[in-house]
Design a binder for these strands. Structure first.
Lengths: 244, 244
DNA sequence: TTATTATTGTAACATATTGTTACAATAATA
DNA sequence: TATTATTGTAACAATATGTTACAATAATAA
């Protein structure tokens, strides 16, 4: 979980510290300004944009690797993470964009370089508090930033379809697991929460039914404080109750 | 998808045709005699029992590999398969049982043999028509048979917990996807179907509600024929309608 | 101070879904 | 032809969800 200078090993010629042929790609969702956001890496010289990802150390638990990768990019710990699919089609990874990046980074490589071989990639999605994230570039890509989900550029390899599948999984999980709160700040109004749900599900919800449902879950704690606001009744603030 | 004599390569010393460090484990569910069954491999000499599994050819799609592996063990094609989790803890695979199997099979190996290294395993579950399956052993394990889910022995590595996780996933999918039919024969009564649901979910269901729900799905086709039976009203036979 | 305005919290009712009881319709057997 | 066991489904009850309505604010403007 080093947030310091990345070690040489991570891009070295041998890469002997990592398992080969296996990668993790992370779809890190945030929510801000009525928009779902995804954290993406960009190599400015070539313009290649990709999902944050990484590899699994030879003695590292898979889920630990996913945590480490997401922590390194966001500066956060204890992140909500969910494995959602394994992308393993042969030929899914066109090596050319990575080749360009390596060249531009002055990393020696031939066509047998392990980063240019076939990878099977395990997809994780993460839900984070947008306001707490400090995006950090990695060894290979030199910028790391939020993109509106509705405005994702053409990404490296099959990363566009990975995002789509992550979104489908997030929607399916929304009703079963109680995970939307991971995208909110600590305290929020039911109105905020409704906008989040509407954005994720891409459909309008009726306020009374939504509030009734959320409150009946018994996982929201009403905070005594109220909102400072505008010319109308102030909404209550809630927080996710850890008492369950 | 060769159902013939397994090729030397599959267990050879080099295994160069397969991706290393990655495996597929398949939880193949069947249903018979009011019981959920799982297909398991056994090496009779050492008594090791394990899930059917296999590896991914270097140019093979991941999902194709899963299909191939399940087809090889069951003799079936067009099998319902679902990726459900990736098992990647370091140390999840105690190499000793596999070592014993290799030794007993007279396969030359030292501790660096690729089959004794760390594997990350992609879990698939399969739903098959029990009556259509012809279980086939593989290169390493010399028998392949059904076990009652309620009576699974101690399995190799973490395979017991893989089965548990598969069952949890199956239960979760049961309401969302319409997959239970894959465990039935072509024609079945609503009573049969209810017993299947009750067995999977491990709880009693009320008949009128269950029938109403199943019929309202609009995916069941009532077959004109009726059941030959006992001293009471004969139930209708249904089949899953492909017209949707 | 007192309307005005916009938005919140929630009651009240309507509709839909699911749970439960009841019973007529069989298909053999006695 | 009665008996028995089980099926198909109607009928009602209990919940859950969708919708309308409205009182309760929190600022602003008169």
């Amino acid at each position: 979980m080093s947030k310091d200078k990345p070690v040489e090993n991570e891009t070295g010629k041998t890469g002997t510290d990592f398992m080969h042929g296996l990668a993790i790609d992370a779809v890190i969702f945030g929510f801000h300004d009525h928009q779902l956001k995804v954290l993406l890496m960009r190599y400015n010289r070539t313009g290649v944009v990709a999902l944050p990802g990484g590899f699994i150390h030879k003695t590292e638990h898979l889920n630990d690797a996913a945590n480490r990768i997401v922590s390194e990019r966001t500066g956060l710990n204890d992140i909500y993470l969910e494995q959602f699919y394994v992308f393993g089609d042969y030929g899914r990874s066109d090596p050319q964009p990575m080749k360009d990046v390596l060249t531009a980074n002055n990393i020696k490589h031939d066509d047998n370089h392990w980063l240019l071989q076939r990878f099977i990639s395990i997809g994780y999605y993460a839900l984070v508090d947008f306001t707490k994230v400090v995006p950090r570039p990695d060894t290979i890509f030199d910028s790391c930033d939020w993109y509106d989900l509705t405005n994702i550029p053409r990404l490296m390899q099959d990363h566009n379809s990975i995002i789509q599948k992550a979104l489908v999984s997030l929607r399916a999980d929304l009703d079963n697991k109680l995970i939307a709160f991971n995208l909110m700040q600590e305290e929020f109004t039911l109105g905020d929460l409704q906008i989040l749900y509407e954005t994720i599900l891409d459909k309008k919800l009726l306020r009374p039914a939504f509030q009734r449902k959320m409150l009946s879950l018994g996982i929201l704690e009403r905070v005594a404080k109220k909102w400072t606001g505008a010319a109308h009744k102030a909404p209550y603030l809630y927080r996710f109750s850890k008492n369950l």
